[in-house]
Amino acid sequence: MTRRHLAAVPSLSLALLLALLLLAGCASPGEKQAAAPAGSTITLGFSAWPGWFPWQVAGEQGLFRKNGVDVELKYFDSYTDSLNALATGTIDANSQTLNDTLASVAGGAKQSVVLVNDNSSGNDQIIAGPGISSPAELKGRTVAAEQGTVDHYLLLLALRKAGLTEADVQFRPMPTDAAAAAFVAGQVDAVGVFAPFTTTALKRKGSRAIATSADFPGAIPDHLVVTRDLVSRDPKAVQGLVSAWFDALTWIGEHRPEALQIMAKRAGVSVSDYESYDKGTTIFTLERNRTAFSGELDGRAKEIADFLVSSKLVDRAPPLEGLFAPQFVRAVQP
Score class of each variant (00 low, 15 high):
R3N: 12
R3M: 10
L6C: 10
L18I: 07
L18H: 13
L21D: 15
L22V: 13
L23Y: 00
A24Q: 13
A27T: 01
A34L: 04
P37V: 12
P37S: 04
S40E: 14
G51E: 12
A58W: 05
G62D: 05
F64M: 08
K74L: 13
Y75L: 08
Y75G: 01
S78N: 13
D81Y: 05
A87T: 00
I91S: 05
I91A: 06
D92R: 02
A93V: 04
Q96R: 00
T97P: 12
N99G: 12
A103V: 01
S104T: 00
A109Y: 06
V113Y: 11
V116S: 04
N117F: 03
D118F: 01
G122R: 11
D124E: 15
I126T: 13
P130V: 08
S134M: 11
L138M: 11
G140Q: 04
R141L: 09
Q147D: 04
Q147E: 08
T149F: 03
D151P: 00
H152K: 02
Y153S: 04
L155F: 10
K161R: 07
K161P: 00
A162P: 01
Q170M: 06
Q170L: 06
R172Y: 06
D177L: 13
A180W: 11
A182S: 15
A182C: 06
F183M: 01
A185P: 07
V193K: 13
F194L: 00
P196K: 14
F197K: 15
T200I: 13
K205C: 00
S207V: 10
R208I: 01
R208F: 00
A209L: 05
T212R: 11
T212Q: 14
P217I: 10
H223V: 02
L224A: 06
T227F: 02
L230I: 08
V231C: 12
S232A: 15
S232I: 03
R233E: 07
K236D: 15
V238K: 09
G240H: 08
L241T: 02
L241I: 11
F246R: 08
T250W: 02
E258N: 08
L260Y: 12
Q261M: 04
K265M: 01
S270M: 01
V271A: 14
S272A: 15
T281D: 14
T282A: 13
F284E: 11
F293K: 00
E296T: 12
E296M: 03
R300K: 09
I304V: 01
V309Q: 01
S311G: 03
R316W: 03
P318A: 03
P318D: 01
V329T: 02
A331P: 01
A331G: 08
V332D: 07
P334R: 12
